[in-house]
C-alpha cells in the first residue's frame, strides 16, 4: 500500500518536474529570442527580472521531484556501515528532520507573500511586476514540497511499524538505485 502511494507520488512529481523543465526551456528560448531581437535594436525587456522569478519557481517546484528520486545529497559514511533496521532508522530519522525543516520553511514563506499582497508590492524595475503574482506560486511550491515530504515520511513510518523496514530503502535511501543520468 505504502509503495503504491510512493509510486503514485513519483509519477505525479515527474509530471510536475517536466512542466517545470518545459518552463525552464521556455525561459531559455525567451532569453535567446531577446538576444536576437537586440541585434535589430528591439527587445522584450526585463529578461533578467523574469529569469530571477523563473529560478525561484524552478527551485521551489523541483524540490519534491528531487526528493522522490533520492536526489538530495546525504553523507553516507556512518549509515553505509549499518544494515536492516538500523539503516532504516537512519533514513526515517533523516526524513523526519527534513520534513520538519521543510514545513518550517513553507510556513515562514507565508509572511513574505502576505506582505506582497497587503502592500500591493511591485518589483522596483521597469516592469514593476506585482510580486504577489510570482510569490504565490513560489509559496505553493514550498507547500507542495512540505506535503510530499510528509507523505513520504508517513509511508516510511507506516512500513516500519508493520515490520517491513527494509522496504523503505527504495524511497528514502541515500542514493537512487539507478541514477537518472545514464
Amino acid at each position: 500500500m505504502e509503495l503504491a502511494l510512493i509510486n503514485k507520488l513519483r509519477k505525479l512529481n515527474r509530471i510536475v518536474a517536466l512542466i517545470v523543465g518545459i518552463g525552464l526551456l521556455g525561459m531559455a528560448t525567451f532569453v535567446v529570442a531577446d538576444i536576437a531581437l537586440r541585434q535589430i535594436h528591439a527587445s522584450f525587456g526585463g529578461t533578467e527580472e523574469l529569469a530571477g522569478y523563473a529560478m525561484a519557481l524552478v527551485s521551489s517546484w523541483g524540490m519534491a521531484y528531487a526528493l522522490l528520486e533520492l536526489g538530495h545529497i546525504r553523507i553516507d559514511l556512518l549509515r553505509a556501515r549499518t544494515q536492516g533496521m538500523l539503516r532504516a532508522l537512519f533514513d526515517v530519522f533523516s526524513m523526519i528532520v527534513m520534513t520538519g525543516v521543510i514545513a518550517t520553511i513553507a510556513v515562514k514563506c507565508w509572511p513574505v507573500v502576505a506582505r506582497a499582497v497587503e502592500n500591493g508590492s511591485r518589483a522596483n524595475t521597469p516592469l514593476a511586476t506585482p510580486l504577489a503574482w510570482v510569490q504565490i506560486p513560489w509559496f505553493a511550491g514550498w507547500i507542495w514540497f512540505a506535503t510530499m515530504a510528509s507523505l513520504v515520511t508517513l509511508a516510511a513510518i507506516s512500513l516500519m511499524l508493520r515490520g517491513q523496514a527494509s522496504k523503505t530503502e527504495t524511497f528514502i535511501g541515500a542514493f537512487a538505485e539507478q541514477d537518472s543520468l545514464k
Binding site: S43, G45, G46, E48, E49, N124, T125, P126, A128
Partner: peptide
C-alpha cells in the same frame, strides 16, 4: 536602477534595461 529613473529614461526615448 530604480523605477523612476527607468521611467524617465523611457520618457526621453531611451530603453531601460535591467542588468
Amino acid at each position: 536602477s530604480g523605477r523612476m529613473t527607468a521611467l524617465f529614461l523611457e520618457a526621453l526615448g531611451a530603453e531601460g534595461v535591467n542588468v
